[in-house]
């Protein structure tokens, strides 16, 4: 049975697209069949996944029945079980209807083990469309006041707007991104416990702030493929395994700079 995961946050720029690409790739790296679907208002997932020049048909073509799902799915060049369904760059976003999205998700469920929906920012129609058909939500939050507040609103929305016909509450997980253990240690950034306390969601993972994330998106490769040994890639891979139900101990990022660099104020890695 396929799992439909919505990656959401409320606030823009916290790492939803990066997370969708990295989690999708990490799941596919374990051999699972994964479709990553871009619901975002502006098309970016294809760029982060390095498939921007291969997009011919997008999600709207499929929901409207202009083309078949198989014609619009783009297979990843590095992982053969990873597919992308791109968002429309130019066409009217109101063209996405609830029925159309329901049909596409139902069809994706038949073919894939995982459907990862990259939700747009905001709490308007686009993001509720993406969350309505999901089984699981990953709430992406930066340890920063505006992001935490918007995540709280999205959590309220997840409870209210999801397919209540199923009569169950959606499984929700918290993914903290851009976590900087040095700043958190100094008391200049909300720490992991603060964020969990405030949002009261189970923790799926902590992605440390890292140059590797930017480097991977520069190259158009999910960080879990581009540098699997890097700290953010390992954190994403662990998060993916937790989504699969495995019991992986949480790796809390720590300040790894030595006493020397602390004393002389060198930038921590």
């Amino acid at each position: 049975m396929a799992q439909v995961v919505v990656v959401t946050s409320g606030k823009g720029g916290v790492g939803k697209t990066t997370t969708s690409a990295a989690l999708g790739a990490a799941l596919a790296q374990t051999g699972e069949r994964v479709a990553v679907v871009d619901f975002a208002g502006l098309r970016n997932l294809d760029l982060v996944m390095g498939a921007e020049r291969r997009v011919v048909y997008d999600l709207i073509y499929v929901t409207q029945g202009t083309v078949k799902l198989s014609q619009a799915l783009i297979r990843d060049k590095r992982l053969e079980t990873l597919y992308l369904l791109a968002a429309s760059q130019t066409r009217d976003k109101d063209a996405l209807t609830d029925e159309g999205v329901a049909k596409v998700i139902a069809e994706l469920r038949e073919t894939f083990d995982w459907v990862i929906c990259d939700s747009p920012a905001g709490i308007e129609r686009g993001s509720t469309l993406a969350m309505r058909h999901a089984d699981v939500a990953v709430v992406v939050t930066n340890p920063e006041v505006s992001s935490v507040r918007d995540s709280d609103r999205i959590i309220g929305l997840l409870d209210a707007k999801t397919d209540s016909a199923r009569g169950e509450h959606m499984d929700k997980h918290l993914l903290i991104t851009r976590y900087n253990p040095v700043r958190a240690g100094r008391g200049d950034m909300l720490n992991v416990d603060d964020v969990i306390d405030i949002l009261s969601l189970p923790l799926l993972g902590i992605i440390p702030e890292s140059d590797e994330v930017l480097r991977a998106s520069n190259l158009g490769s999910p960080v879990t493929i581009n540098n699997p040994k890097s700290a953010p890639a390992r954190a994403y891979s662990d998060a993916a395994r937790r989504l699969m139900g495995e019991d992986i101990p949480m790796d809390f990022p720590t300040d790894r700079s030595g006493i020397f660099s602390k004393l002389f104020g060198r930038k921590a890695a």
Binding site: V145, N191, D197, I198
Partner: peptide, 14 residues
């Protein structure tokens, strides 16, 4: 510390 101020403000607001 600024983080503890942030935490308190968020708790009240939310």
């Amino acid at each position: 510390k600024s983080a503890s101020v942030a935490r308190e403000r968020l708790q009240i607001l939310l």
